[in-house]
């Protein structure tokens, strides 16, 4: 039997809905910082991934070892431990980067270490014959890499890179623990103020989810774009 309108408890009428809208501006402000950190760290991570990946594959000994050490250290320790080390321990040695720079540096280096393995794997997966064919056409080693191998490897890199970017987006939540007011930090702040825990955290989960969908969608488009050449050109894979 439906209850008469005046018996419905107040909190189930229009208040929660208008309440959600009240929460949104603060959370969106946090989302902006979250996305900024994601974008800057992704750019840094991409650069580190390509440099370290190529160095592990092609560079002579000392450089090769340096890249391997970087990859092992950042993949072998926890992202939060890295963040704390750079934020709490490094300033004691006289290097004070500030919270934002620490966040993008650590998350970028962390993503780059995982990305280096993606780059290495994708380059290794290009068939050996492509190197030989390019050499017989008179390409040098660098030219072969840049014009023949890398464009083919790039296509294979897209799906794992999409996963890495989503991991990065999720890892940005950790920066709330080094005082940055990202989406997670704002959620905690709002929770302490309003105690509307369920609504706030569901909303925040939804915002992260939508951002992740956006990355998946973007990477899908990038993959189709990079695959175009393959459909018209030679018959690979």
């Amino acid at each position: 039997m439906p209850r008469p309108a005046h018996c419905v408890p107040q909190r189930w009428t229009n208040k929660p809905v208008s309440g959600l809208i009240e929460l949104l501006p603060t959370l969106l402000e946090g989302l902006r910082l979250t996305l900024q950190i994601t974008v800057v760290a992704a750019a840094l991570g991409l650069a580190c991934a390509v440099v370290a990946g190529l160095a592990r594959e092609f560079a002579p000994r000392p450089l090769n070892w340096l890249a391997a050490t970087y990859v092992e250290v950042f993949r072998g320790t926890s992202a939060l431990v890295q963040l704390f080390w750079f934020f709490f321990a490094l300033p004691l040695m006289g290097i004070n980067l500030g919270a934002f720079l620490t966040a993008v540096l650590v998350l970028g280096l962390n993503t780059g270490a995982y990305g280096a393995e993606v780059v290495r794997g994708a380059i290794g997966a290009v068939p050996r014959g492509q190197w030989e064919a390019a050499a017989s056409l008179g390409y040098g080693r660098a030219g072969t890499l840049r014009r023949v191998i890398f464009p083919q490897a790039a296509l294979a890199m897209v799906p794992p890179t999409g996963n890495l970017l989503i991991e990065l987006l999720k890892n940005t939540a950790l920066v709330s623990m080094i005082t940055l007011s990202d989406l997670t930090f704002r959620a905690q702040m709002l929770r302490a103020e309003t105690l509307r825990t369920v609504e706030i955290f569901l909303l925040v989960l939804l915002l992260y989810y939508l951002a992740a969908r956006l990355i998946t969608h973007g990477m899908g488009r990038l993959e189709r774009h990079l695959a175009r050449g393959r459909d018209h050109g030679g018959s690979l894979s």
Binding site: T172, A173, T184, A187, T197, F201, Y208, A212
Partner: peptide
Amino acid sequence: RSTPLLIQLYFLFYV
């Protein structure tokens, strides 16, 4: 898989 573990932790811890 697409949402942060930290938020999931807080969610369970507070809810």
